[in-house]
Structures are given as C-alpha cells and as structure tokens.
Amino acid sequence: MANTAENKLFDYSPITERPPLHWPGGARVAFYVGLNVEHFLIDTPSTSLWPGTADLAPDPLNYGWRDYGTRVGIWRTIESLDRHGIRASVLLNSDVAVHYPQIIKAGLDRDWAWLAHGKTNSILHANMALDDERGFLTDVVDTIAKATGKRPRGWMGPALTETFNTPALLAELGLDYTLGWTNDDQPYPLNVPGMLSVPYSVELNDLPLFGKGTTGPEFVQIVKDQYEQLRADSERSGRVMAIGLHPFVIGQPFRHKYLDQALEFLAAQPDIWLTTSDDIADHYRRTVIEST
C-alpha cells in the first residue's frame, strides 16, 4: 500500500498572498553564502567525483578529492569572502571541530555564523528512533557550541536529510531555523513552535552545477541571472538569495576566479543585503512573526 501521509510540517502559502517583506536599509535581496565545511570518513562511501571506486576502502581518488577542500580549497574560498566583505554561514559537521581546528579558528576570527550540519557527511541523518536522534543531535550541537563558543541557531542535515522528528528536537535544543526545505524565496514558519524555514538552494550550488558540467563563465552568468530575477521579483516584497559552496568543488584552482567574479558582482549591487542566514532569520522573526 502506498504511503498517504499528509505534510503537517508546514502549510501551503503562495508567495503572492503574503504581506510585504522589507529588508534593512531598503535592500531588495538578502544574500548569504552557505559554506559547507564537512568531514568525511576514510572507509565509508560518500560524495564522489568518480563512482567507479566509491565502494572501495580506502578510496584515494574520491577521499582525496573531498579532503582537498579542508586542506587547500577552503583557504582560497576564504580569500574571496574576505575580499568582498562577506561573512560565511557555515554548515558545520561537528567532527570538523575535532579534526580541523584551524578552520574553526579562521571562522571565529571572521565572526562566521555557525549552523549544525550533522556529525559527518559520510552518514545521512535518517531512520533514527526518537531518543537516539535526541542524543545524537544533542552531541552535535554541544560539540559545535564548545568549539565556537556559541550554540548554533540553524540546521541543515547532511545532504539535507532529517527525520519527521528533527525540527521539534532542534527546537528543544534551542535552534530556531532550518535550511533543509528548499522550497521558497522567503523565510516562513514551520508548524513547530519557534522554528522557521530559511531559503537555501540545491540549484544555485556548486556541487550539482559543476557536477553537471557547468563551466566557470556559465557559473558567473547563473549567479547574475539568479540575482537579477530575484531583484525583479522583489518589487513588492524582499527575496532571499543563497549560494551553496563546497571547498572541494569551488576551491579548485581553475574555478577560483569565477567565484571571485560572482562575489564581486553581488557585492557591487546597490539593492543587496550581504548577510548571514542567522541575521535573515532574526530579521524575519522580528519584523514578521513578532509584529503580527
């Protein structure tokens, strides 16, 4: 028998029927970089460049490709973010705090926003019993809080995975938004007290884009097209633009200048708010949720 469960997590709300959303300073588009900073297990199949060796242990081809991100790629990406005055919203595996403390320090020096992104991206966040998931999430959040000095506010599961219980468990732990439901250009409340959905993108995202053969110049044009359409849409009500980045993808040498060109374009726009997902959630909660 087919599953017939109704979606009770959030309600349908067409964007054309909402009160106008206004960003600080009269900005039309709120922009943030979702920087995926991840840890991968050496003996477990994970995100792969070449599936032919993905089931091997060890798998130097794919593990090395992923490992390039934390060893080299992220430092290039940081250069571009710094150059254009952009604070990252970091989707952080808690194991990163254990294995790559230099990255945590770099983020603390730059006042990055830290979001919980599971423990490791080699393990999807799925099929957990309620109490097991509560313990797992508690460990993830506590580990990030200890490493960064601040409890994360946002969540995105590895590969955007979660259970039906995840939002409520996150709320118990003090988190107040998720990026996992990529179905809107504005934040909106979930049917879980205190929890919001904040837009993220699996389309404007280096991993699937370059995985499909997108070139560097095409990436820059895609970023421009995304911004220009969202700005046009925002004539009456503000929009959110997110770019998902993975240092083992965008941090490759031959792609770096195209990220820099894309960020240079965005940073020069007069109607953009360069911000973080934390600040987007705060502004929406303060001006929409608490004002009604």
Rank of each mutant, 00 (worst) to 15 (best):
T77H: 10
T77Y: 06
N93H: 08
T70V: 12
S80W: 11
V98E: 09
G118L: 14
L56D: 14
A116Y: 08
A57E: 06
T70P: 01
H84G: 01
L92H: 02
D109E: 13
R71M: 06
I103R: 00
W112Y: 08
L56F: 05
I103V: 14
W112F: 13
L115H: 15
Y100D: 04
H99A: 12
R87Y: 02
W65C: 15
H99K: 10
R87K: 13
V90A: 05
D82V: 00
W75G: 12
H117A: 02
G118Y: 10
N62S: 04
P58Q: 11
V90I: 14
G69E: 06
D59T: 08
Q102F: 14
L91K: 02
L56Y: 12
V72C: 07
W75S: 15
G64M: 04
H99R: 09
L56E: 14
A116F: 09
H117C: 09
T70R: 13
T77E: 13
A116D: 10
V72Y: 09
D109W: 08
V90P: 08
A57M: 15
G69C: 03
I78Y: 09
L115V: 09
G64Y: 08
Y100L: 09
N62H: 07
D111N: 07
L108Q: 07
P60R: 03
T70N: 15
H84C: 07
R87H: 07
E79I: 12
R71Y: 07
R87P: 08
R110W: 01
S94D: 00
D109V: 01
K105L: 12
G73R: 00
W112V: 04
T70G: 11
W112Q: 05
H84I: 10
G64W: 06
V72S: 11
Y68W: 13
K105P: 07
K105D: 07
S89D: 08
R71E: 11
L61K: 14
S89G: 04
G64A: 10
Y63G: 12
Y68G: 02
R66S: 04
W65L: 15
A88G: 11
N93Y: 04
A88F: 10
W75V: 13
L81I: 11
I86Y: 06
R76A: 10
G69W: 05
R110T: 06
S80G: 09
D95R: 12
P58W: 07
D111W: 00
R76P: 03
